[in-house]
């Protein structure tokens, strides 16, 4: 029973990361129908900047704030400079740009900070069954996700973002600056991605540290339906706990395979995810 509880609590902690990174994918997908493969790289750059600030100042929380701020700026700049010019042509072009950006940013951080692992601190004490650090990670993700959902559901800006996502042409007619809403969406997504990066990276930072996490986050987003934030958060936690059981009872070497199997099964049985809506496309 103890083992079961340990695995469950471990899974919840990992699930928080998958939920956060998954949520960052969903925010962009809802607005633009683009899967942002560069999301882990944006988070990675934010975490490396935090690493540099922490190393220079010894102030972890300043480093944390810098990572979040860098996420916001990078998200906005990437949308405005790289995505918007190509997205007018096709969604596929934008997806390919995000893939290219992933490779470029990963190479860039390796060139600047080397490909060797660097020690990266936890926010709080990480020892114990469900450590203070685990509680912080889960709490931060739950609070951030709740705040974002409230922003989308009950504020005028959230309404404009949703209107822009549904029908950008009509939203423009209503006076909505759709371009600004898209930039804001990318900035918020990269902000959430940076949170995921900060809680997922410790104890070691290296250029591919978020690759595995991204696969699980994408799986969580697909389980959730890709356009459903609540579904993705639930998907993240369920996947985290599920993979923790796989690791604990069947062996850690099977975790990635299990995640991919879940991804394939969900796509085969419910292509729009467990919580997603059917999308009609004009052909």
């Amino acid at each position: 029973m103890d083992r079961f509880l340990d695995l469950t609590l471990n899974g919840i902690s990992s699930g928080a990361v998958y939920a956060a990174l998954g949520l960052s994918l969903v925010i962009i997908y809802r607005a633009t129908r683009v899967v942002n493969f560069a999301q882990p790289a944006l988070a990675l750059v934010a975490v490396y900047l935090a690493y540099a600030v922490n190393k220079a100042t010894g102030n972890y929380w300043l480093a944390f704030a810098v990572a979040l701020g860098a996420g916001v700026v990078m998200g906005a700049v990437v949308e405005r400079v790289l995505i918007r010019p190509v997205q007018r042509k096709s969604e596929l072009s934008a997806i390919i740009v995000t893939l290219g950006l992933l490779l470029v940013l990963q190479a860039l951080v390796g060139m600047i900070w080397s490909n060797e692992p660097h020690a990266f601190p936890y926010a709080f004490d990480f020892r114990g069954r469900f450590s203070t650090n685990d509680a912080f990670a889960v709490g931060l993700v739950v609070v951030t996700a709740s705040a974002l959902l409230l922003l989308f559901k009950v504020t005028p800006i959230g309404l404009k973002m949703r209107a822009s996502a549904f029908r950008p042409d009509v939203a423009r007619l209503l006076g909505v600056r759709v371009g600004l809403m898209l930039t804001l969406g990318w900035a918020l997504a990269a902000f959430v991605g940076s949170i995921a990066g900060m809680i997922a990276t410790a104890p070691f930072l290296y250029p591919n540290v978020l690759d595995g996490v991204f696969v699980y986050a994408l799986t969580a987003a697909v389980i959730g339906g890709l356009d459903n934030p609540i579904g993705t958060i639930i998907g993240g936690f369920v996947l985290g706990v599920g993979l923790s059981y796989v690791s604990g009872y069947l062996g850690p070497e099977l975790v990635t395979m299990a995640a991919l199997a879940i991804l394939v099964v969900v796509l085969a049985v419910r292509p729009n995810g467990l919580f997603g809506t059917t999308i009609a496309r004009r052909v």
Binding site: P156, A163, V170
Partner: peptide, 17 residues
């Protein structure tokens, strides 16, 4: 051009924005 995923109230609120 109504937003299918928004309630009538939210559709109209978007207009009032």
């Amino acid at each position: 051009g109504l937003f299918a995923g928004l309630s009538v109230l939210h559709n109209v609120m978007a207009g009032a924005d």
